[in-house]
């Protein structure tokens, strides 16, 4: 009996579970993490006169952002109800609401994926947007070069470098069937047009209008026109790359947080009917994390979708 530890007279530490304290400290660092992105976005916006804001330029869809805001708010409500049910030992109800939260998280990412696809389709990607007319002309050169190179790799298979393969085109043509021969002839025509294009771009002889005409001529060519029929000259978008970088940085890291939240919920949901009070702290802490994800979106929505163009 004398070896029994004496109960401490004063309770040390904060009056909350260590896991919850850990989660709040983590959320404190998360506030600074996202503020760094949002702060950078704000100062770059104000420091870049002509920042793209129109729908035609950015393909930012207010409706999609608004629906996603509603989805996250609903998921936050579901997770807090799930926690309340855990506290009240109604584990079936808690499981159902956590499952509904997971479904809404998937819906959020689905809508986000549709938004991302719109940007990919319009090539609104960091490092892919021409910011001056000269950039647009150079980008056309790169696009045509990519087609020339990929066609050569397809028609002359092997591991040799492209310049070696180019010397083998005539030799390959002599032994090829009629269809391949026509394709190789088309490649030769395209390569000739590309070399002329490249030399004109290098010498700064092409304006944007000239580049449009040159592309139309190439597309009208009966032999190799179909190879470049889908090529377009991208719209000039000053500061488009900074916009794309900040947009994908903020929304991308937010989406990663959504995925992490989903993993936290799945870890509880896999308990199924065996879910019990041992998971109450887990649900509470996952809920805190999820509300933070919601909080970030509450500020991203006006800052990305509504305010640009109005200040």
């Amino acid at each position: 009996m004398s070896h029994a530890p004496a109960k401490p007279a004063v309770h040390m530490g904060l009056p909350l579970p260590n896991s919850k304290l850990g989660m709040w400290l983590f959320l404190g660092t998360e506030i600074m993490f996202f503020t760094a992105f949002i702060g950078t976005y704000i100062v770059l916006y104000f420091g870049s006169p002509g920042w793209p804001t129109g729908y035609n330029e950015t393909h930012i869809n207010v409706l999609a952002g608004g629906v996603n805001t509603f989805v996250l708010l609903a998921s936050s409500y579901f997770v807090v109800v799930a926690h309340e049910a855990m506290v009240n030992k109604n584990f079936k109800r808690a499981w159902n609401f956590l499952a509904a939260t997971l479904v809404l998280a998937v819906l959020f990412l689905g809508i986000k994926a549709v938004e991302y696809k719109g940007k990919f389709d319009h090539r609104i990607l960091p490092g892919q947007i021409p910011e001056t007319e000269l950039d647009a002309v150079r980008l056309l050169g790169k696009d045509v070069q990519w087609i020339v190179d990929s066609q050569l790799n397809r028609l002359v298979p092997g591991a040799e470098p492209l310049h070696v393969k180019a010397t083998k085109v005539t030799e390959t043509m002599s032994t090829a069937d009629e269809s391949t021969k026509q394709q190789l002839q088309a490649w030769e025509g395209l390569n000739g047009a590309f070399n002329q294009l490249r030399s004109d771009i290098s010498a700064n002889r092409l304006t944007l209008d000239d580049a449009h005409h040159r592309l139309e001529e190439m597309q009208a060519d009966p032999k190799f026109g179909p190879l470049v029929s889908h090529v377009q000259i991208a719209h000039v978008l000053p500061y488009g790359n900074l916009f794309a970088s900040t947009y994908f940085l903020m929304t991308g890291f937010h989406a990663i947080h959504v995925v992490v939240g989903m993993i936290l919920f799945i870890a509880v949901l896999k308990e199924g009917p065996k879910l019990d009070e041992r998971s109450t702290d887990w649900v509470e802490n996952s809920g805190l994390y999820w509300h933070f994800v919601d909080l970030v979106w509450i500020f991203l929505f006006p800052m990305i979708y509504i305010i640009p163009g109005n200040i």
Binding site: P52, T53, G54, G309, N310
Partner: peptide, 11 residues
């Protein structure tokens, strides 16, 4: 008509 946003904000 092409780039609505450019002229919309003049910061």
């Amino acid at each position: 008509s092409h780039g609505g946003g450019h002229d919309a904000h003049g910061h």
